[in-house]
Computed example of a mutant assay.
Amino acid sequence: MANQKRFIAGAVCPRCAAMDRVRTWEQNGMRYRDCVSCDFFEQLPIEDETPPELDTRISQSQTAPASPQDDLQPVRILDPGPSKR
């Protein structure tokens, strides 16, 4: 059932600020939402394209791999000299 109305858990109505009173459904290529506590009603077109992925540490490392040479640093071993007791 494409037009079954479902409540959105934790959603707050933009008009009356009631929580858990907003429901949503899809019908004929449109997405609807309304509030059962007040007369709030909104319709939005359903977009076919997916939104771009947000940049995260993981997605950035996949898109721009770092060269292994970038993280290399020479190590110096220091001679502390003879111990003084």
Rank of each mutant, 00 (worst) to 15 (best):
L44Y: 02
L44F: 10
E53V: 14
F40G: 00
A2T: 09
R6E: 13
L78D: 08
E49K: 13
E47Y: 09
P68N: 02
R76Y: 12
I77W: 03
D39W: 01
R21C: 10
W25R: 01
S83H: 09
A17C: 11
S83A: 13
R31H: 10
P80Y: 02
N3I: 04
L78K: 08
P14K: 08
Q62M: 15
Q4P: 02
K5Q: 14
Y32N: 04
V12M: 09
R57T: 09
Q43R: 15
Q27I: 03
V12L: 11
S83D: 09
E26Y: 02
Q73R: 14
S83V: 10
I8Q: 10
C16N: 01
R15M: 12
T56G: 11
A9W: 01
L44W: 01
A9L: 06
R85A: 14
S37N: 15
V75C: 01
P52F: 01
D71E: 06
L78C: 04
P68L: 03
T24I: 06
D70W: 02
R23E: 14
Q43D: 09
N28L: 11
P80F: 01
C38S: 06
R23C: 03
I46T: 08
E42Y: 02
W25Y: 15
T50C: 06
A17Q: 15
L54N: 04
